[in-house]
């Protein structure tokens, strides 16, 4: 007998802490009529610890997180944060020896599946041009989830590519604790990225798949005076393209 699927959605502290990102993901899930167990709104996956070199302290911490997640009985977990995703998918088993008894998906994989199965309907708005920004976490530092988000986006809007994309895409500067250590440097990197990648393509909307990239690019965009650039996290953007 096949066990029934029970889906968990791990929001992660960065998405949970940014009202517009949180609302975007919740709206998406509700419009897509997804049943899920919400998790990770008040529970950090532990990635700041490993990024800070606190591996010894993290060992005990991640064990507690894993126990909590496992106790919900979920069979599949989706997160929209590449940091949480890589933490659960790679660090938990490889660094801490914890095998999670459920499948971990990034939101781009999840949305791609839903679209293929015809479970979400997106408005056709091919007059809208967006530039997709590849987050490093699910790209070159992860499993290379480049085509999933593009398939989803291309089904509803026109996707413009930066000259350097996918494995050579330019980082927004928002990762690796840089936004915590030198926020102005992180934002300067985002601003430079927008000037180099986005402005020459005459795009005014960036869509990405990472709460850190979304926040950092938005901060960088705010520093560009002569053009308004809008930045969306993928769940948030898709929620807007879905019928109510």
């Amino acid at each position: 007998m096949e066990t029934e699927e029970k889906l968990g959605v791990f929001f992660g502290c960065t998405t949970a802490g940014a009202p517009h990102l949180l609302k975007g993901l919740e709206d998406f899930l509700s419009k897509a009529k997804i049943d899920y167990v919400p998790m990770g709104k008040d529970l950090c996956c532990g990635v700041p610890l490993t990024l800070a070199g606190y591996h010894e302290e993290a060992a005990e911490y991640v064990k507690k997180v894993a126990d909590k997640l496992i106790s919900t009985g979920i069979t599949k977990m989706v997160t929209s944060c590449p940091h949480c995703y890589m933490m659960f998918k790679n660090e938990y088993p490889e660094e801490f020896g914890i095998e999670l008894p459920f499948k971990v998906l990034h939101f781009v994989e999840f949305a791609d599946e839903l679209l293929k199965e015809g479970k979400i309907k997106l408005r056709n708005r091919k007059d809208v041009r967006i530039l997709y920004h590849d987050p490093c976490g699910i790209g070159r530092r992860g499993p290379g989830l480049y085509e999933e988000p593009r398939r989803v986006l291309e089904s509803c809007v026109q996707v413009v590519e930066a000259d350097r994309n996918r494995v050579l895409g330019t980082c927004c500067g928002g990762g690796g604790l840089l936004r915590a250590s030198l926020p102005k440097l992180a934002v300067a990197a985002a601003k430079r990225k927008i000037q180099d990648d986005v402005l020459p393509k005459d795009a005014d909307t960036i869509v990405t798949s990472c709460p850190f990239c979304t926040l950092n690019l938005a901060d960088g965009a705010a520093e560009i005076a002569d053009k308004e650039i809008k930045v969306f996290d993928l769940p948030q953007f898709l929620a807007e393209q879905m019928e109510d």
Binding site: C136, L168, C171, G175, L182, A186
Partner: peptide, 20 residues
Amino acid sequence: YSCALCGRCKEICPAGIDSS
């Protein structure tokens, strides 16, 4: 703590060094 750990340097390094 000034590195965003993005890993592009590894892709373009002739020696394949992963500075991240």
